[in-house]
Design a binder for these strands. Structure first.
Length: 716
DNA sequence: GTAGGGTTAG
């Protein structure tokens, strides 16, 4: 194959990664390499822009200079630069070691950079230690070029200990004030989550450039401090430091308001960066996060040279916007275009399916099959996403099967499975798994949220307290608002409302809406006007637009017989212009999705559904069902209220499911809001009288109804 | 010869 053909076929294979035109110099010079010295060969290597050309030069170079470490390292860095880490590592593994007691750091530095560029972080550190060790064949004094690749490796490994050691070396040798070293230190500490140290270095740096600012903004962004990152970006602009591509990429990940996005867009366009594919992809993500999904799509359509990240950004955007159909449509379009997919694309599709109420277990199975056929089922992130997918579609058995088959598990995979058990009310299983986990992985604050919420969903009060206390004492994890919210939930379940209030008062941090929401939720099961008002007062300040809070308080008043107050809250809601979210229920029957609204008559079987519903209600009434009109519409007579309860979307979907599935089949429905209290009671009776298992996924958790009992223990 | 950056599982 000629060089030209080789390049052409490579381009065809990677149409999503277009390769720029090869400089004529490379192709023409390859045969001439035999007379070139190692230095000029190296500079020639750095002009290669395709794998084929590089391979040709590789063969030619190493034939002439088989033992030249400098050339091998340059070659490896170039392979890494083009994205072929495996080739890079293979070159490095057959490269000769630096000569014994090589005191010139140059060779070590180039080797360090090659390993770091190839993503071989562990080996970078190993080379650094050898370099520092005179007994082990090293003995070179690091210079300012040594530290950036080594710090990059520490950051990659999130190894703060090793990073701090390298930092100490840099201080000892007097290189910590070098702007390149300082920038690398900020990035390393940022990746390790040590924001204060990163900030201290940033503040103390005698010289700063655009990279310094970008590294600090990136450190804040990666650790979720988006507001601070944005404010630093504005300080940077005020200081007349001109942002560049990397700065914009970091800043865009922090933007969640459409106006900010528009301002940034203008700035980017002014610098002529709006047609850069990296920037475009990030813009698609930014606008979809701001809720401007259509504009994100418009930007996506405008990307001339779409790469894989363009497609995944858009699919991810649809997943975020809960637009499963659109995500799937785009995915199909992509496949039809012959584009080879990767694990990130699949993660987007899996997430779209997990989150969507319109997707069913069949969809989940289809996507799982697709993952297996594309040989991506051994990818750790994909496996974890699949566990979550099955959990969200009600199949703990499939989730657990994937979990058990995983060759390697990390904190996230354990956490996903534990939270899955929690969502399904299987608290004991969650705790068992958590104990196993502690043997191999150190828990973090997120897994504690899963464990505590599993305890609260299953009513394991003592165990919950034990876990909460062990967070600090055993693992040194400082509880956050989410953990306090779980504990308030736990106390609320036990009816200890006053204790829950006192617990909030004693909190060392400011309670957020999740904490007050738990307290208000507790009052729904154990009505208490005073405490409900206290919680609602804060919630109406923190989340004035959240209609659910108003409705909850109004229902609590109704159940206490305080009808006037209930009306007052509904009026307040109207006056503030807060719009109620329309409740709906989804059921999938024979691969078709059916959606029911309250009192819905759109379904072709409506007559039959209502006739059957009437009969069913009579039957469950005979065995003790009493309608709870607290959950009915207001301003109507009791009898009408009762009727209005009958036509709630949950009940319509269940009856439709009963009519259209064989005896013994499990009925699974999805509700976009929390399941209504009356529907919850009715479903228990329906499960008893029909002998069917009914699984309800609502906005909070799963309810498994069987033989008159629900897995949530009537607290949710 | 050096640093910062896009889509990515709880």
């Amino acid at each position: 194959m000629t060089l030209r053909n080789a390049i052409a076929s490579r381009r065809a294979l990677h149409s999503v990664h277009p390769i720029p035109n090869e400089p004529p110099l490379v192709a023409a010079s390859a045969p001439l390499l035999w007379w070139r010295g190692p230095r000029s060969s190296a500079s020639l290597l750095n002009t290669c822009t395709s794998l084929c050309a590089l391979k040709l030069l590789h063969a030619s170079v190493l034939r002439r200079h088989p033992d030249d470490l400098f050339l091998s390292a340059t070659l490896a860095s170039r392979y890494a630069f083009l994205g072929f880490s495996r080739h890079a590592l293979s070159v490095l593994s057959s490269a000769p070691p630096p000569p014994p007691c090589a005191s010139d750091p140059f060779l070590w530095n180039i080797l360090l950079r090659a390993f770091a560029d190839a993503g071989a972080a562990e080996r970078t550190l190993a080379v650094y230690h050898r370099m520092r060790d005179p007994g082990g064949g090293g003995g070179a004094r690091p210079d300012r070029f040594t530290f950036p690749p080594v710090l990059k490796a520490c950051g990659h490994l999130r190894n703060l200990e090793a990073g701090a050691e390298v930092h100490r070396d840099a201080v000892e040798l007097g290189y910590h004030y070098d702007v390149f070293v300082g920038n690398s230190l900020i990035a390393m500490y940022g990746k390790g989550g040590a924001l204060e140290t990163a900030r201290r270095i940033f503040d103390e740096m005698p010289e700063r450039n655009v990279v310094t600012w970008t590294a600090m903004i990136g450190a804040l962004a990666q650790n979720g401090h988006t507001e601070e990152a944005l404010s630093l970006f504005h300080s940077m602009l005020d200081g007349r430091v001109r942002p560049n591509r990397a700065t914009f990429l970091n800043v865009m990940s922090c933007v969640s308001k459409a106006e900010e996005a528009d301002d940034l867009y203008k700035l980017i366009a002014r610098q002529g960066l709006h047609s850069d594919v990296f920037v475009q992809n990030a813009m698609v993500g930014m606008y979809s996060r701001c809720g401007k999904i259509e504009f994100a799509r418009h930007l996506f359509d405008g990307i001339v040279e779409k790469d894989l990240a363009s497609w995944s950004s858009m699919i991810e955007g649809y997943a975020r916007a809960d637009m499963f159909d659109e995500a799937l449509k785009l995915f199909r379009k992509m496949k039809l275009g012959g584009i080879l997919l990767d694990h990130v694309i699949l993660l987007g599709i899996i997430r779209a399916c997990s989150n969507s109420l319109l997707a069913s277990l069949q969809h989940a199975r289809f996507i799982h099959g697709f993952v297996v056929r594309n040989l991506l089922d051994q990818n750790l992130m994909v496996q974890t996403a699949l566990i979550d997918l099955y959990v969200k579609h009600g199949s703990l058995r499939n989730a657990r099967r994937i979990f058990d088959q995983m060759q390697e598990k990390n904190l996230v995979s354990w956490s996903t499975m534990i939270s899955g058990y929690g969502m399904h009310g299987r608290g004991e299983d969650a705790l068992r798994l958590f104990s196993c986990m502690k043997g191999s992985v150190k828990p973090d604050h997120i897994v504690f949220v899963s464990v505590l919420s599993a305890c609260s969903h299953a009513g394991l009060i003592d165990k919950g307290w034990q876990c909460f206390n062990s967070m600090m004492t055993e693992f040194g994890i400082v509880p956050r608002a989410e953990h306090y919210a779980c504990m308030v939930d736990l106390l609320g379940r036990a009816g200890q409302l006053k204790e829950a209030r006192e617990f909030i008062e004693r909190m060392p941090i400011k309670p957020d809406s999740s904490v007050w929401g738990s307290l208000l939720g507790a009052c729904r099961i154990h009505p208490n006007a005073e405490i409900a008002e206290l919680a609602a007062k804060s919630l109406f300040k923190l989340e004035p637009e959240n209609s659910g809070r108003y409705i909850l308080l109004s229902n609590i008043y109704t159940s206490l017989g305080k009808i006037e107050e209930a009306h007052r809250i509904r009026a307040l809601m109207r006056w503030r212009g807060v719009r109620k979210i329309a409740g709906y229920t989804i059921i999938v029957v024979k691969n078709k999705v059916y959606k029911f609204l309250v009192g819905d008559r759109m379904n072709p079987q409506s007559d039959l559904i209502y006739k059957e519903l009437e009969k069913l209600m009579d039957r469950i009434r005979m065995i003790g069902y009493v309608p709870n009109t607290n959950f009915a519409l207001h301003d109507v007579e009791e009898e009408t209220k009762e009727k209005s309860l009958y036509v709630h979307s949950e009940k319509l979907a269940i009856v439709f499911g009963l009519l259209n599935s064989g005896p013994g089949c499990v009925i699974q429905i999805h509700k976009n809001l929390r399941v209504c209290g009356d529907c919850h009671t009715a479903t228990k009776f329906i499960s008893k009288i029909t002998g069917r298992e009914i699984v309800v996924r609502d906005s909070h958790r799963f309810h498994h109804f069987s033989d008159g009992v629900c897995s949530c223990g009537d607290y949710w």
